[in-house]
Nucleic acid binder design. Sequence first.
DNA 1: CGCGATTTGTGCACGTCTTCACAAGCGCCT
DNA 2: AGGCGCTTGTGAAGACGTGCACAAATCGCG
Lengths: 230, 230
Amino acid sequence: MARLPEYLRALHNLAETGHETVSSEGLANAAGVNSAKLRKDLSQLGSYGTRGVGYDVGLLIDQIEYVLGLTQRRAVALVGVGNLGHALAGYDGFASRGFRIAALFDADQERVGEEINDLVVLHIDELPRVAAEESIAIGVIATPAAAAQRVADQLVAVGVTSILNFAPCVLSVPDGVDVRKVDLAIELQILSFHEHRKASLTALPAAGGSALTALPGGLAVTESQEAIGT
Amino acid sequence: MARLPEYLRALHNLAETGHETVSSEGLANAAGVNSAKLRKDLSQLGSYGTRGVGYDVGLLIDQIEYVLGLTQRRAVALVGVGNLGHALAGYDGFASRGFRIAALFDADQERVGEEINDLVVLHIDELPRVAAEESIAIGVIATPAAAAQRVADQLVAVGVTSILNFAPCVLSVPDGVDVRKVDLAIELQILSFHEHRKASLTALPAAGGSALTALPGGLAVTESQEAIGT
DNA sequence: CGCGATTTGTGCACGTCTTCACAAGCGCCT
DNA sequence: AGGCGCTTGTGAAGACGTGCACAAATCGCG
Ligand SMILES: NC(=O)c1ccc[n+]([C@@H]2O[C@H](COP(=O)([O-])OP(=O)(O)OC[C@H]3O[C@@H](n4cnc5c(N)ncnc54)[C@H](O)[C@@H]3O)[C@@H](O)[C@H]2O)c1
Ligand SMILES: NC(=O)c1ccc[n+]([C@@H]2O[C@H](COP(=O)([O-])OP(=O)(O)OC[C@H]3O[C@@H](n4cnc5c(N)ncnc54)[C@H](O)[C@@H]3O)[C@@H](O)[C@H]2O)c1
């Protein structure tokens, strides 16, 4: 489930504040989900709660980390050390959440050799050599969209089967390779959409205005906390 | 629908490459979705295709931009000009997709006054004044998690009703305020989960090993292109 | 030792999303 | 003008996710 990481973060917070156990209600609150949903999710892991008490925080953390495959610190290769790549390379949130940035790559000779957080930027052509030395579990693409597909191909070629793509484009990859995309502009546009809806709703108390603003049935936007007003 | 922005991006690509019309199949391909799904989504906007021909690219772009509320260039306020904030502030993908970064804020006096892309970083206390001068549609939070809730409250206080949160924490906001979250580590953990699953599947051809790795029914992870192997 | 308070695990029903499949509509070519 | 191929729009079926509500289980306390 995609909610497991969220639970994990909430659990770590709870552990730091000294909680030994937590009820489904409490954890659900901290993670921003329904308690029934959380219990159902957790029961999929093999049921590790005690009725009348709740869940053992430490045990649950171990459980989830195991299921997520975080027992081994996975190596991440970052390709494209530009504007965004720099921020990612300098981010300490990776290390604390089970990942290790193993290598930085770029195609620009100007960038190659630059040092960020004790890591030297390598030329993208070095990718096969580095991949041979240490097993790269995940590739992160932070290049312009035009180069993303090519980089993806290169990553796949050296055996990477999980890709996180920041470039605004769809990647085509062979079966067995998993790619997730993060697109800033899309997030903003979804917010804009809600803004537009909220605006037209308040402007027109009831009866629909344009057939476009007053969409039938209310368009649902998945994920994220939401709190559309009255 | 959350897929509209994806369609929009694909349509812009098509427009740039000279296409005047596009079939649902073609657009669905470019956006990485099922063609029936795409047609159903588009029919919600009021049906603008011609049978036997397809959709008019330009018209469809206008349609979607209108529904997403992109006819007006929305003002974005970015709070937290650190590692990530710098990258966001310097990103030109905002402007080209219907947004305008209107102001940068930070609490650190060291940062205040710094200039990024013709924009001067202001102290967070200036937020009410700036918000009064120009209507801020969306607030982006790129501060540490510890400060995120406080910043969210400040944004809400000046009338911001849409928030994009990069800090790894859940925000509580009043009804009517919409918040979306982007969490890097969660994306990586989901990929790690799939890696773990793939690894244990290949290791154990059939009969289940640990009750934890071989989860019943296959856990689904929503969103993103996926291509889980055999 | 038993009882009540508390919390988990889950059956069930409901609404939503997805996909297939096909009739209806449109344009082009003859 | 008519037919043919292509494409849209949508009905229906199925899969899926969600949330309620409650029985079963456990602990603490008298
Ligand atoms: N900057 C942001 O805040 C931001 C936000 C969201 C999405 N993005 C997306 O992330 C991507 C990168 O953005 P950016 O602002 O860092 O751009 P950038 O131009 O600053 O950086 C791109 C880097 O990729 C390198 N590169 C180009 N082709 C390459 C190749 N074939 N192999 C390896 N490296 C290559 C370039 O040398 C450059 O260093 C873009 O697709 C952008 O749309 C950026
Ligand atoms: N750097 C990344 O690549 C990255 C990736 C994903 C998520 N994040 C998250 O984004 C957030 C920012 O990351 P970062 O690396 O830029 O951190 P950072 O420490 O470099 O920057 C944080 C900035 O926020 C400012 N700030 C702190 N409190 C503030 C307040 N109350 N009001 C206004 N500004 C305030 C600080 O002065 C600092 O400039 C963090 O929550 C981090 O977990 C970062």
